[in-house]
Nucleic acid binder design. Sequence first.
DNA 1: GAGTACAGTTATGTATACAAGAAGGAATAC
DNA 2: GTATTCCTTCTTGTATACATAACTGTACTC
Lengths: 242, 242
Amino acid sequence: MAKRPVDEPVSRRSAESGENLAERIYAQLKQDIFEFRLLPGDRFSETEIAERMAVSRTPVREALFRLQREAFVDVLFRSGWQVRPFDFNYFEDLYDVRVVLETAAVKRLCEQSIGGDELDALKQIWLVPAADRLSDASTVSALDERFHEMLVEATGNAEMARMHHALTERMRIIRRLDFTKPPRIEATYLEHGKILRAVLQRRGDQAQLLLKTHIEESKSEVRKITLHMLHTARHKSGQERA
Amino acid sequence: MAKRPVDEPVSRRSAESGENLAERIYAQLKQDIFEFRLLPGDRFSETEIAERMAVSRTPVREALFRLQREAFVDVLFRSGWQVRPFDFNYFEDLYDVRVVLETAAVKRLCEQSIGGDELDALKQIWLVPAADRLSDASTVSALDERFHEMLVEATGNAEMARMHHALTERMRIIRRLDFTKPPRIEATYLEHGKILRAVLQRRGDQAQLLLKTHIEESKSEVRKITLHMLHTARHKSGQERA
DNA sequence: GAGTACAGTTATGTATACAAGAAGGAATAC
DNA sequence: GTATTCCTTCTTGTATACATAACTGTACTC
């Protein structure tokens, strides 16, 4: 698409790292939030970010506005920016929206017998012998995200998939904390397997119930463990900085 | 060049309307799209908008990026901006998402007997004698939007309401075209009344079915009439410009 | 006459300059 | 010691300058 110039003196840098600065800074900041280098409640200024990333304020502002729209940060009128503080009600609402979207998706999958490709792909990952299961927390966490996203994608509704993906991104920060303990990973394999089998057998009601229970379990787990995990993360991040 | 606004002092206006320029330009551009002063497929540049609104490119770009994220416009790499062309599959997907969110909402309203205040307010509007009904297309169109939004808001899930509101905004351009004919208005009163009564009687299944049918009817109506309406709107807008 | 090369125009992306207001600290009055 | 006032500093919002690449039309070559 983008035509390559014959010689590449300056355009090499932009080609390497994501086409434009604003995009790169957006991704970097989001990663900083996900990995608790920027903590909920932390305040910072545009200049500060710009200097750290060695760019001007322009792309930084563009990235920040995008993060603001996605509810990761708030701008305080002429008084800097802030990583949005934890709000459990907010996350619980998001979990409920996920229940709505995903149960609607599996209902459609069962009733219309569609999404064969996506379901096959999921089988390869989740319906495997116990010995073949993965155990790395961050890997399983990513697979978990994909499991739920693909259920929605399988319906073929691109806009619903897009909205669900946005939800997933917004919840990642809190969902990661849920995957630090092996029992949680094991339970995930068990429950995803059950849901998947129900969908493959086109048992809509059962699939919906299993899925709803599964998500609401995560929801309650999260509320239990988050405060402690956040403090740990905060501490660890503090050490890394020093 | 853009230093001195022709119509009004820019500082006064910003104090009056919304504190900052980017917000104002965002609203103005969105309105231009809704009212077909900017037509799907139209191309324009940042400078062009900036000069017309008598501001610099900075707030214009901010507004455009927001509109881009909300799927109203596309940026063509170093080749200007474009009002997103009509895509019926896209709008159909949005209608389906609305079905999912709103049926889930009324289900919850019926099962948990919540949202009394919102339902009361809706009663005042939709369950009135035929003589008291409104007939102005744009008024009824706005009330129609609020009807569906309030069903979702009544569940108390702020994030679901926010997502639904975003959907409503994205669909407004096409939904307006649906309300130009009196029969459509009458049908809306009838169907909203039925849905509302079912919800008030906590008959969940019936309410869901009525709502689903109601939305899908709009969806099919829209696909039928849009092309013609769009041409009319394009013509009218051309006359206004000349 | 057709195709290609080249330069001028114009687009967005990025950096920088400037404006206005909020926050915080120091100094002063009591 | 306490409260208040002013001033410095730092913040975001906006305007402008500059960089780079794509498009377009023209002139030239074959």
